[in-house]
Design a protein around this nucleic acid. Structure first.
Lengths: 220, 220, 220, 220
DNA sequence: AATGAATGAGAGTTCATTCAT
DNA sequence: CATGAATGAACTCTCATTCAT
């Protein structure tokens, strides 16, 4: 019976399947630590330990720390995209309703939001090119498909407008998140009444924003 | 004729005016280095040297490195806000035209955009509370006024919608910038044709996005 | 009417008398800060400010920071020596009584004790030779005289034993002080019951120690 | 034959034993540098280099620089205590003889003396509490045992007087050392004839002092 | 005499990454 | 595959001292 928290040397991962599992375990450890700390990127050592591994082992699965977090964001984004695709296929096509659903959905994806805010700003800045390629390819692939789906479902859209709409939405979302989710140090400050206007809470700013972008695209 | 590049000890800044000027010179040195490096936050020593000063001197004007960059962003944002206010007062009130003007204006503000992307994501994360207060206060003050002006000029807006609109716009802008302005490492990658869809260049995504937000607010 | 706490430029000290007064004021500022902080050597700037002066001014009166504290210790020691001399001349010559009086007297001289502990360990280590000369001369002069007085009052002592006795006493006193007055960081620790044996409090260890040295010298 | 001065990466210390050895090697490097410089606390980098290691490696074995020196003092004190215990068990119980032996023994322990003088004055002032606890515990443990031994050997002592006597002796010793071992800067000065009285050399002041404390305790 | 802006050496600490075992 | 000891670059901030005004 495997015990990931034991201090015994973890069994060697053999075969692609086991290796993928270990990689995934590392990503989950990273995710957990990132979430627990409220958006602080943990050290490699912390991640390794949390995964029940040694520091060096992480480098067997990821070329660099940032690669690891890029991989994590890839997953989170993929997940989000999948969720949207599903909603588009089954749900209503009303802008308000979509905005509503999206907002609620996003509130459960704080790790993705925080990670996206950091990746596009900082993480990418220190990563070997190859890793960025992988990241962009994965992301771009998912968004392309989703963009097509959007155009399918909203025939009013001209070709290419699907991805553009998605891009704008994504940008608005992470932009608002950055403004609405100040890091620990700033949290105390921003919660003062005099700043209320500019900390209108993520949900209530993002919903009308998404709706606006959606309507504009459809009315075009 | 003074020689700022000489190694001689720089003139002492005496009186509030000269001190403000020196502070400004430091900010400009920081700005230049930040711009030249494409968004890398320079070390205090680099900034000092560029300003023709010694490291320690910087700490006479700023309590910490991050404070310096927060001060820089404060200025850049203030500048931007001022520019918008002026445009609102003198320019057309057509959504498309405003979006157009704004886009062109933003393209000249890459330092502000890059800095904003970093500040809200990273810089704030390491700053003493007092500095964050100063920053938020300055920013918030400017935005409040601008929000009122917006409501003045667009009587269709309900009270409070001015600031919200500005917030959304700001979020969209910095969000898009982050996606469209990948850091050096990523630049080569993203310029490949297969990513074209997701790097439609800042200008052409931001313009319709702003227009959309604007129209939605006015149509409300 | 002079106001040392005002922010106005202090009047220039002219003539030896005024200069001596200013020097004294600086020393007192240093003493106060040192006392208040519980034995932390304050920065030159702090001392200057407390004295209502600017940093540079301190250097008109003392060649270096350590010199200042050496001068302060000189005074404190001189004071102590004077006090002992007086007690010897007027008081009883019983070893126990002397130890008793001395202990009580020392408890009011924590600044001297703390300062002595630091000076002989650290401060001297960074001072220009000239300053050390001045310090040693002053101290040595006082102790010589006091030594003679001791030999006068205790005819049992052989020539030279007076100073030796004083030296031993001084050493015991500052040694015990160091052990009994742990700095802030250590205070919490040492107050735990399990360390009680080695924090027997200054007073109750120093009194018998002094008495022992005294008796031994007299019985010789 | 291994070459410790080569620039090659040093062998990795594996297992508790080798790690303890490496820790010891670092302590010895620190000791040597401290001794050579006449009591100047060396930088971490210097210590590391002397031990043939990189700066960072030192931090694998000690949490902070001061911790390292506290550990060193712990050893030195332990050594001293052990030496005294042995002497008490095998040697004569005559006060003069003990004082004599102790003085000779101390003259070979200049590192301990210098270090003690600094630790109790300065080092403790900047150390994380945990490190101070460890230090006090180690020291206090050894002194307790030695105190009991003293009471055993000198039945004239009342319970508790053993540790007190040790404490007084220790205080006298480090106090005298501080006065008799002026740092480099002061050495030239103090060697002048006019200061002879107050630099009667460590040995000849400490011996009678110890004897005095001892006799007083026994005569009680 | 007084000022206080400018200096810049200096040091401790962290942590991503490597590689011998 | 896994390990974790070793590395060392990187960076911030302090503060005693100087000297032009």
């Amino acid at each position: 019976m495997p015990d990931t928290t034991s201090t015994a040397r973890p069994r060697r991962a053999r075969g692609d399947e086991e290796k993928a599992a270990r990689r995934q375990a590392i990503l989950e450890a990273a995710r957990d630590l990132f979430a627990e700390s409220g958006g602080e990127v943990p050290s490699v050592d912390q991640v390794a330990r949390r995964a029940g591994l040694a520091k060096g082992t992480v480098y067997l699965y990821f070329g660099a720390k940032e690669e690891m977090f890029l991989a994590l964001l890839t997953q989170e984004l993929g997940d989000w995209i999948g969720s949207i695709a599903e909603a588009l296929e089954t749900g209503a096509l009303d802008a308000e309703k979509i905005a509503d659903w999206m907002t609620r959905d996003l509130l459960e994806r704080t790790v993705m939001l925080r990670l996206a805010a950091q990746c596009h700003g900082t993480l990418e800045r220190q990563v070997p090119e190859a890793a960025v390629v992988a990241f962009k390819q994965a992301t771009s692939g998912g968004l392309s498909q989703l963009g097509e789906l959007v155009e399918d479902r909203f025939p009013g859209l001209k070709p290419g407008e699907g991805p553009t709409l998605l891009l704008q939405t994504y940008a608005l979302v992470i932009g608002l998140w950055q403004l609405a989710d100040p890091p620990k140090a700033a949290r105390a400050v921003v919660s003062r009444p005099e700043f209320a206007k500019f900390r209108p809470d993520f949900a209530s700013s993002v919903r009308p924003g998404i709706a606006a972008l959606l309507k504009a695209a459809l009315d075009n």
